Simulated assay, not measured.
Amino acid sequence: MTTAPTVRSRAVRRIPVGAALLLVASAAFHTLVLALDGGPWDDPVSWRKPITFGLSFGISVLTVTWVCRLLTLPARSRTLLLGAFTAASLLETGLITLQAWRGVPSHFNTETPFDTFVTRALAAGGVTLIAVVVALTVAALRPQPTAAPSMRLALRAGLVALTGSMAAGAVMIAYGLTLEGAGRVAEAYRSAGFLRPAHAVTMHAVLLLPSLAWLLSRTRRPEAERLRLLRVTVAVYGAGAALVTTAAAVGLTFATPATAAAVSAGVTTAPALVFWAFGARQAVREIRASTRPIDRVPTHGPHQAAPVGGPDDDRRLDA
């Protein structure tokens, strides 16, 4: 009775995971292209865009696949949301990569009918991503009886931050389209990405915070202590994200927006990977310990074990 739904659920997860690995592989390939071909890093036409979008969307699809399993969602809603997010991520990265190989800007480009179509399709993909993230955030804010309090806090804070990241992206797209509509295309290329550091630092909180909650769940810390640690982490992260957002809004960055965005994303995702590495090592140890053969002691027959510690010892050997 449960075999068919289980197989279907696994198939639903395999497609997004395969798509995410494809996006990450694309980012790795274009990193090699950048190393061999060279070219600018910050310009509207750059190999940076296939690299950063492929890596960021690949990580995001994997994260959303995991988050959808943690949230209490109807199976149909989970499939629909995960499918829409995966399709939109592939669309965004694919079109951006196509334009990079054509040697033309991907956003705010209306030079030809095809370029206009790409620009509008990217905007539509962004709207889809925002709708999915908002739906997941609303679901996370509802009661989650199967999740520990620390994981509930991590999921809610991470998805709220992701919603803020989508909002920053929407602001940049709207600002750039406004400039492009006014005929100020060069200015749109130059200044529309001013919130990229804020967009990057808030995008992967949904990976960072639940990863920390998962790692803490692998320890012997009581849940009350884990919850306190998550609250402190969320507060520190929120303060840092607010500082980065404010600095980006007023034009104060330590580097160009593209470089600052890449650094911000790395600062967010690197600790999450470390959390998973430590948690995975501990999980492997537990699996090995549970599968280690047990030395059995005979409890009957001529080789029955003698009582330990003399006749008054009340300890018993487990067979």
Rank of each mutant, 00 (worst) to 15 (best):
I287A: 14
A277S: 09
A283V: 04
G183Q: 03
T259H: 11
H204P: 13
V274E: 10
A188Y: 08
A260C: 01
A261T: 02
T269D: 10
T269C: 10
P257M: 00
F194I: 02
A255Q: 04
R221F: 06
V185F: 04
V263S: 04
G301Q: 07
R316Y: 12
E223F: 02
R228A: 11
A188P: 12
R184Q: 11
L317V: 12
I287W: 10
A182N: 10
A289V: 02
A270Y: 10
P298G: 01
P257H: 01
R220D: 15
M203A: 11
L208C: 11
R221S: 07
V263T: 03
Y237R: 02
R292W: 10
A262G: 08
G176K: 11
L216K: 06
R196Y: 11
L209F: 07
A224S: 11
T202W: 15
V206D: 15
E180Q: 13
T253Y: 00
A248T: 00
P298S: 02
G181K: 07
R228T: 09
W276H: 14
G251D: 00
V308D: 06
A213I: 05
F278Q: 15
V234L: 08
A213R: 06
G193Q: 06
P222N: 13
A242D: 01
A265G: 12
V308S: 06
F278Y: 11
P298M: 00
F275P: 05
V284S: 02
A235P: 12
F194D: 00
R220T: 15
L207K: 00
S264E: 09
E225S: 13
R288W: 07
T256S: 08
A270M: 12
R316Q: 12
R315H: 05
A249V: 01
G193A: 05
E223M: 04
A306T: 13
T256M: 01
P311T: 10
L212D: 13
A186G: 11
V232C: 08
H204Y: 05
P257Y: 00
L227I: 05
G240E: 05
L208H: 13
A255M: 05
T233C: 10
A305F: 09
H300L: 07
D314S: 15
S191H: 14
T202P: 13
L212Q: 09
E286G: 04
A192V: 15
R190S: 13
F275H: 05
A306Y: 14
A248L: 02
A242N: 02
Q304R: 14
V244G: 09
V232H: 12
L208N: 12
D314K: 15
T259P: 11
T299D: 09
P197Y: 04
A305C: 03
A277G: 08
P293M: 03
A260D: 01
T291E: 10
A192H: 14
V201D: 15
A258W: 13
G193N: 08
A198Q: 08
R190K: 14
G310R: 07
P197A: 04
V244I: 09
R231D: 13
L230T: 05
V274F: 06
A289C: 02
W276P: 14
W214C: 11
A270G: 13
T246A: 14
D318W: 14
F194L: 04
R226G: 07
R288G: 03
R190H: 12
L215M: 06
A265E: 13
Y237I: 01
A235M: 14
V263I: 06
G251V: 00
L207Q: 02
G251Y: 00
D312P: 01
